[in-house]
């Protein structure tokens, strides 16, 4: 390649400059929330939210952790739902995708349409709510936060398309060697499909981690409140942890009723931010695979 001319260099600089501004705009709320969570409550309200607070304070976190039990419980529920939900959903969708990818299965098209139709039409949330709570009895339980999302046509088709792209001879030769379908699936197909499984796992786990819809629809019990809903409660009523315990910890200072919102947010997104470099690498890979195929 020939060396870049001055004009090209200028163009690159302008390009990178403007894109960096966009990137910055995407990051600003994260940084702002972080600094706000460490800002003294009086300063926050009097001087306004700021990237460089005049007076730092950890009171927001102290207030948040004064009700440690609920924070820990929120984490536990969210982790349990994410791990169990992802495992279940991956298994259900992969188990369904495999037969549908088989050309030898006579009713695969009927079944595929049966799945596809769930993407076209929905009965709406009211019948769904009545069926789930009244008829299936899924409410106020951990399962209620998991099962309704387990089967997902979108992820199922993603996996089916991947399975379809694997050469069929692999399964056939194993069959000749006497392996059953289950064995072929778990010992041959699944290991070969790690790239697709990895990206679907990511999509599913992100969905469970960030979900609060099942929580507000199907749960009334505080002990089952996932992290996202705990955050929502703190943000919307700000009466979290204002008992004696809180005053004991904070002392006579002003209670950080605003600051706690930002502290709770940081606690909620912490794990995602922490895992982000890893997550986005696989996520982008998955998207690339999907897009090139689609």
């Amino acid at each position: 390649m020939r060396p870049p001319t001055t004009a090209e260099r200028g163009l690159q600089a302008a390009l990178i400059g403007s894109l960096s501004l966009v990137a910055l705009a995407c990051l600003v709320p994260f940084v702002l929330t972080f600094t706000a969570s460490f800002t003294d409550e009086n300063v926050l309200i009097a001087n306004g939210i700021s990237f460089v607070p005049e007076l730092l304070s950890t009171n927001s976190y102290k207030l948040l952790f004064s009700d440690m039990g609920r924070v820990v419980s929120g984490y536990k529920i969210t982790f349990a739902v994410t791990i169990l939900g992802t495992a279940l959903s991956l298994l259900v969708n992969a188990l369904l995708a495999y037969p549908l990818a088989k050309r030898t299965l006579k009713y695969r098209n009927v079944l595929a349409f049966y799945c596809f139709f769930t993407m076209l039409f929905s009965g709406g949330i009211v019948p769904w709510y009545i069926i789930t709570t009244q008829y299936l009895g899924l409410r106020n339980s951990l399962l209620a936060l998991i099962i309704p999302y387990a089967a997902n046509a979108w992820y199922m088709f993603l996996l089916r398309n991947y399975f379809k792209s694997l050469p069929e001879e692999i399964g056939e030769s194993a069959q000749i060697d006497g392996a059953g379908e289950l064995r072929i699936f778990f010992q041959i197909i699944m290991p070969l499909s790690v790239p697709a499984l990895a990206s679907v796992t990511l999509f599913i786990s992100l969905q469970y981690w960030n979900d609060w819809w099942l929580g507000i629809m199907l749960n009334e019990e505080k002990s089952l409140m996932p992290l996202q809903l705990l955050l929502r409660e703190i943000v919307s009523n700000a009466i979290f942890a204002q008992g004696e315990n809180a005053t004991k910890i904070i002392g006579s200072e002003r209670l950080p009723t605003e600051g706690i919102k930002y502290a709770a947010t940081i606690i909620t997104i912490g794990p995602i931010i922490f895992l982000y470099p890893f997550l986005q690498k696989y996520f982008v890979k998955g998207l690339m695979v999907g897009a090139v195929k689609g």
């Binding site: 259900v92 969708n93 006579k106 049966y114 769930t118 009965g123 709406g124 019948p127 009545i130 008829y135």
Partner: peptide
Amino acid sequence: KNRTLYLMAFPGILLFFLFNYLPMAGVIVA
């Protein structure tokens, strides 16, 4: 003939039935 394959598909089929098809029938509540 293909019972293993259909059994593998069954959990997903059932979940779609419970959480998608039953609510479709449930639209009569309107």
